[in-house]
Amino acid sequence: MFGRIKSALGREGEARRPEPLAPYESPTKATVERSELVARFMREAEAANIIVSFAETDEDVEKYLDSFVLRQSCGVVALSDAVAASCEGLAARLSERGLRVVVPPGEPAPVMFADVAHAADNGNSASRPGVGSDVDAEGFKAALFEAGVGVTAADYAIAETGTLVLGTGGERHRLISLLPPVHVCLLDARRIVGTLAELLAHFRERGEARGRPPQALTFITGPSRTADVEQTLALGVHGPHELHVLLRTLT
């Protein structure tokens, strides 16, 4: 096939690294003010059908999660690695109230991107035991099909679009944020970046430094949606129909 491509381009021999194209420079200037970033993120997130709440302290987070999950009156709740590790006692409290709590099987995920936010406050969450999982990979999948709520943490958020960014490495987020009909995502306000361009530049640096980028990066902007039936919006066609963000602001 390379022969055909080369002859189509009128070229012979080894392809040489081309002179790279000048990168795109947006005319909109970058926001540096933290409060502005938070406000922009909130505005855009809400426009994308995300429900945003606030927490200032660890206690606020606990209170929110306890009451939120119990209000959903579901039988099964799933917690991601970072949530299970950083919200101590959450799993135990929910179990006491009769819920089945599932966490990803095996070793808790090593922290990759969460090193500034979640880990900086409480020590390195990777070294913490977290909650022991009572399921294997298949059992975990099966439980997620039954779960009513999935709780994860976001590694980053993008203000200009109201987007949550979840990466593997820090979190086994892929199924917990997708299979249950309600997804709750914890976000540290310090992890909000202004633009997609900033975030991509950041990942590129990290990816190069480590030799390989995270295997899966998921950008989430709102609940699962479709307009395939008469171009009318419907939520929750495959993924969650509700997406809640708990924004941990600075005191």
Binding site: R212, Q215, A216, L217, T221, P223
Partner: peptide, 11 residues
């Protein structure tokens, strides 16, 4: 502005 989901899958 952006779709609900964008997945970047690497290896």
């Amino acid at each position: 502005k952006i779709t609900s989901y964008v997945s970047l899958l690497t290896g």
